[in-house]
Design a protein around this nucleic acid. Structure first.
Lengths: 327, 327
DNA sequence: CGGCAATCCGTGAACGCTCACGGGAGCGTT
DNA sequence: AACGCTCCCGTGAGCGTTCACGGATTGCCG
């Protein structure tokens, strides 16, 4: 096969030295307008494109960050990713996105290749810190939505406690007493969000809130709501693990002939923009997803530059209740 | 500031040559287990991480592709992006994602920097081919959803004609005669989808279909439907520019007390997965978004490898009617 | 006419790594 | 004892670019 066309080829054709070609291409000064044009023509003629590796090798700028997410099609991660992209663009950084397809095997594979491609890694990981460290081998990493034990990592923490309390307060103020929750069915242990919910209920002297289990999808949410209502027909409000499940619950409620929020109030979690396309618009404990992505990028940037990490309290994003129509 | 730690530093500390370090790190053979461990320890000790530029410079593998999309938060583009990511991962390629924020200025800026970072570019562009070429300077590029005039580019064409005809057939078969359309309000000229729609209506001897204008959002769709129905109260079905607008229309119809599809049938375009979370689930002229992304990646790969382009008929993805509940 | 800027261009070196090759040590075989 | 093989390891070269120089040419002034 034909060799790659280098700067020297261009130089030869244009009848100048490589340095002159370099000058023409990066339009620095110290070059005659005529020769510059000649070089540019020669370059175009030969189809020359500079090697990003050679260029990157000599001038040490240009940072690129790896963003690892479990599922880009999950709207929550989409929003986080969008926030990260925006923050990166503002800084002139580049983001390589890896979708691990909710698979730990794929995550391992990703970690394996990502080291050779980026300056820092950011995202949602399910592997434990030891294995992460082993794969990453010293590369800066910031974990989102997950606390780190080793100082080798850095993380963006999210706190939904206040927001969930607000949600329960809101429901109680509206007269609700029998409030259920639809937790996720994915992982083994119950979620933090469930703990927050139970706490908040306790504060109002409301106890033993029923908790269903929904798989992570709209249909899962619908199914779970049916089950929950079957066992506890007197429920007047439901809090869900996230907005997707809440949307399924909305659908199921309608099918059951229940008006929302009249007969059944629904409060989601995440505060997705998508919550506005359903009817009624979803009331939700909202996370500032854009900020999450932006913080992750900012922190990653400091790490690669060797600057001091952001202060801990800056790396926390807390949820607030976003009242729309469903509660 | 402290210099970067190189392979030579590791070699010195471990008391071996750089080649041996290289062997240890890339676990090739021809190295004693003891020395290998010693090298690995030294590397970890020094916090050594190989330079991706130096490595990339010498071995010419590792392709990375730039994916340019106008708005990652638009679910359609999200799906395309996900398809692209998946296809790239299957090949071991990397994808840098650029969100141009629906801005031509940002698109220009992106084009400017993307050249130095990737081997090929893929995505949705709004600049004309001349300017694209000027910025890209010879880099392989695949335009999605847009035909190219210059052979310098390559493109993934989408054809919705058949699907739209199917949709109209479906509506007519269900007894609908007064069918309206909600076109987008974004660009100057009316859309291809509108042409297809009018064509399909013509075939059934139905003429002068009313056409509203919706801005690209759920609220825009809702507003447009209200307007349309205001002017033409006798409409029994609506076809929309895309699913987002259709979802807004769904919401507006409910507010007007119209049952869907009983009083008003709604057919969207795109076939988003999101169409299943609304109630009723959206019937839509569906595009295989995953395939769009995958094709773009595949084609880009052939271009960078200098392989022959995919045959034209392979680069076409056609829409088909996806009947769910709203029509 | 000497001198001095200004303008333009070329030459070594370096960036950090891998590839191809060669060579020494140790062991067994003839 | 000479040879050959295996197992390790090191040395030169090169990947394609930019940086820091230094040199050549021209124009202008005193």
């Amino acid at each position: 096969m034909s060799r790659r066309v280098t700067i020297n080829d261009v130089a030869r054709v244009a009848g100048v030295s490589r340095q002159t070609v370099s000058r023409a291409l990066n339009d620095k000064g110290e070059i005659d307008a005529g020769t510059k044009q000649r070089v540019l023509d020669a370059a175009r003629e030969l189809g020359y494109r500079p090697s990003r590796f050679a260029r990157g090798l000599v001038r040490q700028d240009s940072t690129t960050i790896g963003l690892v997410i479990p599922d880009l099609l999950n709207p929550f991660f989409t929003e986080v990713a969008a926030g990260a992209l925006e923050a990166a663009r503002a800084r002139g950084w580049h983001v390589i996105v890896y979708d691990t397809a909710d698979s730990i095997t794929v995550e391992r594979g990703t970690l394996e290749v990502v080291v050779a491609q980026v300056d820092a890694v950011v995202g949602y990981f399910s592997l434990d810190e030891a294995e992460l460290d082993r794969h990453l081998g010293g590369m800066p990493a910031v974990l989102i939505g997950r606390d780190h034990r080793s100082p080798r990592f850095s993380s963006i923490r999210i706190d939904g406690e206040k927001g969930v309390h607000e949600a329960v307060d809101h429901l109680v103020a509206a007269g609700h007493r029998r409030i259920g929750m639809l937790d996720h069915a994915g992982r083994a242990e119950p979620s933090l969000r469930r703990d927050w919910f139970i706490d908040a209920m306790d504060e109002h002297g409301l106890h033993a809130p029923v908790v269903g289990n929904a798989v992570q999808s709209a249909d899962g949410g619908a199914e779970a709501l049916n089950e929950l209502l079957d066992q506890h027909p007197d429920l007047t409000a439901v809090f869900t693990y996230n907005d997707i499940i809440a949307m399924g619950a909305l659908k199921a409620a309608r099918r059951l002939g229940k008006a929302v929020p009249g007969d059944l109030a629904v409060v989601g979690f995440d505060g997705l923009q998508l919550g506005t396309v359903v009817d009624p618009a979803l009331t939700s404990v909202a996370l500032d997803t854009r900020r999450i992505g932006a913080l992750a990028i900012a922190q990653a940037g400091r790490l690669v530059a060797g600057e001091p990490s952001l202060p801990d309290e800056e790396l926390l994003v807390s949820a607030v209740l976003l009242v729309r129509e469903s509660a």
